[in-house]
Design a protein around this nucleic acid. Structure first.
Lengths: 233, 233
DNA sequence: TTATTTTTATGTTTTACGGCACAAAAATAG
DNA sequence: CTATTTTTGTGCCGTAAAACATAAAAATAA
């Protein structure tokens, strides 16, 4: 396999939304400490409980942010797509990682020492605003999620997850197949239910022609109905 | 009743954690637009869905931040104590309020137009950091809450709420009575359960001598046991 | 005061969902 | 290629918690 090595020059353009906010000196400082990392499917990018020491940016691939719950049951709290920054919240709050990051599929991730970032944030108001906006949106989504996961019934939660995956990772060229293939277990951990129930409910949706299943491939057949299930259960 | 009117001079010292970060000009600008508001028990400080146009600071009293869920069932997502800033997230995310703020008891609230704040944040990195820290901590708590509310059993969730209220509002002079008196319904909305179950479980705790109930007064008798229930259910 | 509404309390019924067991199928390892 | 592990698919059962039904107590209004 002749995979070309990805170098710093390849990822810098991806980081431009952030780099644009910096002056020459800050930009140089940041680039100097930037490192590139490759992960395979199911690799741990960082683990819950670990000291948080980097700002991460997902250049390519897909990954989940999850928390261990009661009896080791995982709950997926966010999913990340390229190009998105992640894994900085804990450091900003002065904590160890409260959740772990795991690759759904092969990922290319850039790391910048969080100390460098925090140093620049103290001086650069534009960069500060960059993070304020992201954190504010994430907090809104987290509250939304709390209510939905606790109050909706299983069918509503699964429908919501399917729509959420469509919004997060989009559809394939056919315009209806989710472009992420999750295990039933991941789908369950995203929707706060047991694997059995994810399987069961997915089958029910298929029988009702709301979706079509082909292994891990999920085709959304009737968005209207899916949205209705999402709303009223 | 001869209540002295609270004026801007009374609240400025309370705002010092924020004002200290500003230069003379910014500080003046902010003070000029600061207004003081009084709310009675159950008054709405702002409503879900409303355009967000102020940064709020709770000077005195106690209040809840809650979201409407399925079938109008409310979920309390945060509680605010003096002196704490709140109600700024939505504006930072460019959204209307995603949750509402309601007074648990009489409250004194200060409002600053959020435009003024955002204007200063664009220039003042220290102020930016002030909000980044808060948002980061809130987001961590929100994720934590999502997992606990979805995975723990009723007893664990109620025990957690009682400990949470102790941490948020403290205890009375006797060293064991929660210094906030919530309705059973609020307690239920905080713990993600029906009012009936909040009442039932509270009674069970009282019977087990973990707490003592006197109307809305709750005395924590056995913290160790309460923490154990919180952990293992 | 008396009347009305709201909150608290408790018992009964229903059901949504987790837990478990067991195959079949698929993926991975040897 | 075969052996082993992991994932997916179904059925059945038990139970935690919601839904429903009253009634007592407390708060609020008339």
């Amino acid at each position: 396999m002749a995979r070309r090595t990805i170098g710093i020059k390849d990822v810098l353009p991806k980081l431009s939304p952030l780099l644009e906010l910096l002056d020459e000196q800050q930009s140089e400082l940041l680039i100097k400490h930037t490192t590139i990392h490759h992960f395979r499917k199911n690799d741990i990018i960082y683990a819950e409980g670990e000291p948080s020491s980097y700002l991460h940016c997902l250049i390519a691939g897909k990954l989940k942010i999850q928390k261990e719950g009661v009896g080791g049951r995982a709950q997926i709290v966010r999913v990340i797509r390229p190009v998105e920054f992640f894994g900085y919240r804990a450091a900003f709050a002065g904590q160890n990682y409260a959740s772990g990051a795991v690759a759904f599929e092969p990922c290319v991730v850039v790391r910048v020492p969080i100390g460098t970032i925090m140093h620049i944030v103290q001086q650069n108001a534009k960069l500060g605003w960059f993070f304020i906006e992201r954190l504010s949106k994430d907090l809104g989504r987290a509250d939304e999620r709390t209510v939905n996961l606790t109050q909706k019934h299983i069918r509503g939660r699964l429908a919501e997850s399917l729509l959420f995956l469509r919004d997060s990772y989009g559809l394939e060229e056919d315009g209806s197949t989710l472009s992420i293939y999750l295990s039933r277990e991941d789908l369950a951990n995203l929707s706060n239910m047991t694997t059995s129930n994810a399987i069961r409910t997915l089958s029910a949706f298929a029988q009702e022609k709301v979706i079509a299943i082909d292994g891990r491939k999920i085709k959304l057949l009737d968005i209207g109905k899916l949205e209705k299930i999402n709303r009223i259960g």
